[in-house]
């Protein structure tokens, strides 16, 4: 590796995040006397990454394009609540979960389209728009449609799908833990996001728009259309992720996604995305989600009361955003 490339790498946030992750793993591994490396513990942490990691991908692509989406959890919640309610009433999803997923994706896409229509047609602060649509969607789901919690009556196929596993591991104490099938979707989504962002002209359009919207327009990109497609796809994927969560938790709770954006957005920024757009990568985002999930799930291992979870999350984010701000300041000089 030549010197210039080396220098470029060490200037990236992703590089430092990865170092932090390695150090954290080492420290927690030592403090917990190796129990972090128990197969069951690893499986638990990977399992906990599924939903947040997938949401982070949605958040990442929007942020790369210079947007700030507060509404994706509300879209997911409305999409899956509506989908499961319909499945329950129609008696669908008894043998196959496909109907549930299809419905949730379609609803998600429609809601995303709504976001996309507003954002692409009017030059507005995306944070304020999506705050508005978030509130609106929550109102639709719990006010207008009065969607209820579905727990024990959740259609069988959805439950079954959620409980299905790739493999089972047993730790030294004989405890068993299963690796959920849903993990595959996290891997696929990360791979697809990475491919789209780096290897397609659509992905480069997102970086271009995030870097300089006027230039992107002049270069020949249809910025309006790109944004519309982006928010529609993000909506559809959010619907899908929501359904994954329903299956994993074996219940559909309309309120479950409230304030989810406040944990996902900071994590994505921690991973090197910029709220001003044009920066961010799948690798960095996954690393940041990894750090946060690791910390959340190993509090007990290192003997810290789990009530401190929120505090440590906040502290990591705080340090993360401060360090990247200082880095940006240093670059200027």
């Amino acid at each position: 590796m030549n010197k210039a490339a080396m220098k470029r790498m060490t200037r990236r946030t992703e590089f430092y995040m990865f170092l932090v992750l390695i150090i954290l793993i080492a420290v927690i591994g030592i403090v917990s006397k190796g129990s972090l490396f128990e197969s069951t513990q690893i499986v638990t942490i990977l399992r906990a990454m599924v939903v947040d990691g997938m949401f982070a991908m949605c958040c990442l692509v929007v942020m790369v394009s210079g947007g700030f989406d507060m509404s994706f959890p509300a879209i997911a919640a409305l999409a899956y609540s509506l989908a499961t309610t319909i499945c329950l009433n129609q008696g669908w999803c008894q043998t196959s979960p496909i109907a549930g997923f299809a419905l949730s994706i379609v609803f998600g896409a429609i809601l995303g389209m709504f976001n996309g229509w507003i954002i692409s047609n009017f030059k507005l602060n995306t944070m304020l728009v999506t705050l508005g649509t978030q509130t609106f969607f929550t109102g639709v789901s719990m006010g207008l449609l009065q969607l209820r919690e579905i727990t024990s009556t959740l259609p069988v196929a959805l439950k079954k799908f959620g409980l299905s596993s790739l493999f089972e591991v047993t730790n030294s104490a004989g405890l068993k833990s299963t690796m959920t099938t849903m993990f595959i979707f996290l891997v696929i989504l990360c791979a697809v996001t990475s491919f789209v962002l780096n290897k397609t002209m659509f992905g480069r359009a997102l970086y271009a728009i995030g870097g300089n919207e006027v230039s992107a327009e002049r270069a020949g990109y249809n910025v309006k259309k790109t944004k519309f497609i982006l928010y529609t796809v993000v909506g559809a994927v959010s619907g899908f992720i929501g359904m994954i969560r329903v299956c994993m938790a074996s219940q559909s709770i309309p309120k479950a996604m409230v304030n989810k954006e406040f944990t996902i957005i900071p994590a994505v920024i921690l991973g090197g995305a910029s709220i001003f757009g044009g920066e961010g990568s799948v690798f960095g985002t996954v690393t940041a989600i990894g750090i946060i999930t690791l910390v959340n799930n190993s509090m007990l291992l290192v003997g810290i009361d789990s009530y401190w979870k929120d505090f440590f999350n906040g502290l990591i984010i705080l340090i993360g955003v401060t360090v990247s701000a200082l880095q940006a300041m240093r670059k200027k000089h």
Binding site: A208, G210, V214, S215, R218
Partner: peptide, 14 residues
């Protein structure tokens, strides 16, 4: 144009 229509976040190649 005066602002050069460039993308500061991308490489020279792009």
């Amino acid at each position: 144009y005066q602002d050069l229509s460039i993308f500061p976040n991308l490489t020279v190649r792009e």
